[in-house]
Nucleic acid binder design. Structure first.
Lengths: 345, 345
DNA sequence: TTGAAAGCGCTAACAT
DNA sequence: ATGTTAGCGCTTTCAA
């Protein structure tokens, strides 16, 4: 159907290599010849077949990105950051959504390899240690960089924020508001990101002379539902906390709805601080205090690191790039009104 | 690097076609041979090169989807619906984000063609009529279906809801709450979707004996910012409306923030009804009354229509598939407290 | 400056 | 049941 280089050459009475040369802007083609070919190329609106080109060139100029939840606007922002950076350098970005599912992630990793993407950006989904260790093998030597989350001790490049410090800041913010019983709702701690956040939280408590209470540490799975369930459970405890740091913005929504159901007012009765800035962060009730991660920058930076790795012949050892974060204080965190006791059903 | 079919054949002392036959599950290979080959395939963890396979087979089993705003969860839901449907049928989905930008959309359309996707799902970005008319040409005969939005009178398959009826229902809901001055914040009316919504709105007003006031029709560009600016302008009018239907969920957020700035309380002073259900719809203040579109179903249905079109040799005329919607009433729409006058700065 | 020809890794006739 | 071979559409030596 679509005109190929061959038929074009035949039509023009020139060789395929000449046509190819003008398509690829090689300099030795005579101006007249170039004009004639270009003219015709435009006429038939020639579109190169990337399959053939990539097969021959042995590069696709595509990079794949896998995120655990594309419905989470943190990851769409990250994706746009990476896309813009790559587009400006002649690469296309293919994004895939693992939905926090190991199988899906594995399939995408495999697909990307089969599609011959030149490199892979991965926000690993939570998984078992054994699964996580399989990742480097799955990409079969292709350049890979972990973004936002990373395995504990990884043999590949990583780009993320200082999650420990971020969580420390969040927790300290709550302590400064007078809270002593502070909970944390975290992701499964199979990944460094979650482990660091937990660590920062514990560190902040200790630094303030508060004992870490294991009953105040809740593990969710990054869904609204799990956070909702955690909220229910939390409020049924004998001594519920008066504040919580929630490590994922989707979980924040689920947690807030549990509080609302139990008629626990935020921030009068309970303070909440979330991770990641969203479209709706300032629109929900009450406007949410959050730890803001530079999502777009994270995407762009990881793309840069990946491109560097791709162009690196001398096996430079894996790098770790740490980005900044900041605390955006809104209305969801406040000094407790009736210190110490909150109404639970 | 990666083992190819050729080196595998050589290693096994068999021909490439035999290896190819077992890879593709052709039945005429003897059980022993099959076992031996499969065994080795597993051993080296053979991954077929999709570029080569697709080039040869002249099909990629990939379909491309372009949405205007991936940060809008309506479109991520749509995308997941399409992805699940396609995956189950052996197709992969590539999603791209045009960011409501014609140039980006055009580039992706072109990219998809060059990548030889077998079909394309398109939620067209708003654009000029001339641009929209170019779309069928850009895909160069590739199967295409418009999703959610479509050009007025399109020569290709379309899947959407009855936007006119949806907007009618939204407007009527407001009328039933006693509102007479009702505004509509819509997308650029270059596409049928927006035109229909405007039409449904006007129809509902007329059906209730209310004159359509051109000053109550606002055209935004699907960004928070544009809706915020519209909100400002609206509240500065001599006779502002007391309610509005907002045709896009991102614009709803921007519009609400304008109301908040002007200290106009929702729903006491002003009622708002939005389009599309989001994670945060029930979490914002106040919980939002919305028209719910079946996003995932829309994705799946459009994928089905596309596959049918792809497998259709006899040029069946373009179809239009209309999906249902419903009205989810929450707290953002109410009877006006102080009928008729609202406080504007 | 242009052309001829050899593949990239795979599939699918077409032999055998 | 297995092997030989001709491409898919392109890029890229290499020769002319």
């Amino acid at each position: 159907m679509a005109a190929g280089i061959r038929s074009i050459a035949r039509h023009l009475g020139v060789s395929v290599s000449t046509v190819s040369a003008v398509i690829n802007g090689h300099s030795y083609v005579s101006p007249e010849m170039r004009a004639r070919v270009e003219q015709y190329l435009r006429e038939v609106d020639y579109q190169p077949n990337y399959l053939a080109r990539s097969l021959r060139r042995r590069e696709t100029r595509m990079v794949g990105l896998i995120v655990p939840d594309l419905a989470n606007s943190f990851y769409t922002a990250l994706s746009r950051g990476a896309e813009d950076f790559l587009l400006a350098r002649g690469y296309r970005l293919i994004v895939a959504d693992s939905r926090e599912d190991w199988k899906r992630q594995k399939d995408y990793l495999e697909s990307f390899c089969r599609m011959m993407t030149d490199g892979i950006l991965l926000v690993p989904s939570s998984a078992t240690k054994a699964q996580i260790d399989r990742i480097p093998g799955l990409v079969r030597g292709r350049p890979l960089v972990y973004v936002d989350r990373s395995p504990i001790k990884s043999p590949v490049d990583v780009v993320l924020i200082d999650n420990s410090a971020a969580s420390f800041a969040a927790t300290r913010h709550l302590v400064e508001r007078g809270h002593r019983r502070i909970g944390i709702i975290t992701e499964p701690i199979s990944l460094l990101c979650a482990a660091d956040r937990l660590e920062g939280y514990q560190h902040a408590l200790k630094a303030s002379g508060i004992d870490v209470d294991q009953d105040l540490i809740y593990i969710g799975n990054n869904t609204k539902e799990s956070a909702h369930e955690i909220g229910q459970r939390m409020l049924s405890q004998k001594m519920p906390p008066t504040a919580a740091v929630v490590c994922n913005n989707i979980m924040t929504l689920g947690f807030l709805s549990a509080l609302r159901e139990r008629k626990v007012d935020v921030p009068e009765d309970f303070s909440v601080i979330g991770f990641d800035e969203c479209d709706w962060s300032e629109h929900i009730h009450p406007p949410l205090t959050t730890i803001r991660q530079p999502a777009a920058e994270m995407g762009a930076t990881s793309a840069r690191v990946l491109l560097e790795r791709m162009g690196d012949k001398k096996e430079t050892p894996p790098s770790t790039t740490v980005l900044g974060f900041d605390l955006k204080v809104r209305s969801s965190t406040a000094v407790l009104a009736n210190c110490g006791s909150i109404s639970t059903a």
